[in-house]
């Protein structure tokens, strides 16, 4: 008896979901630490925000990869 069946679209959606989960955790941790750093050392805020923005953009690339795999998996 088949209880569940994974179709190509379902697999693609699963990939997208997992692909978006990791970066969400990563951005939460990254920005949390950056806010803490800015609160402790306001004079270093410029440097912290520069590295924070780059970090966010890099982590987002992971989500973009999952997103692209979703569309390519469907095609």
């Amino acid at each position: 008896m088949i209880l569940a069946e994974i179709t190509d679209t379902g697999l693609a959606a699963l990939t997208y979901g997992i692909g978006a989960l990791g970066p969400g955790i990563g951005i939460g941790y990254l920005v949390g630490q950056a806010v803490q750093a800015m609160a402790r050392q306001p004079e270093a805020a410029g440097m912290v925000r520069t590295t924070m923005f780059l970090g966010i953009a890099f982590v987002e690339a992971l989500a973009l990869i999952g997103f692209v795999v979703f569309f390519l998996g469907q095609a």
């Binding site: 970066p23 969400g24 951005i27 939460g28 920005v31 949390g32 806010v35 924070m52 966010i56 987002e60 989500a63």
Partner: peptide, 8 residues
């Protein structure tokens, strides 16, 4: 913090 997470 909220905008960084929500914005993502």
């Amino acid at each position: 913090m909220g905008v960084a997470l929500g914005g993502y």
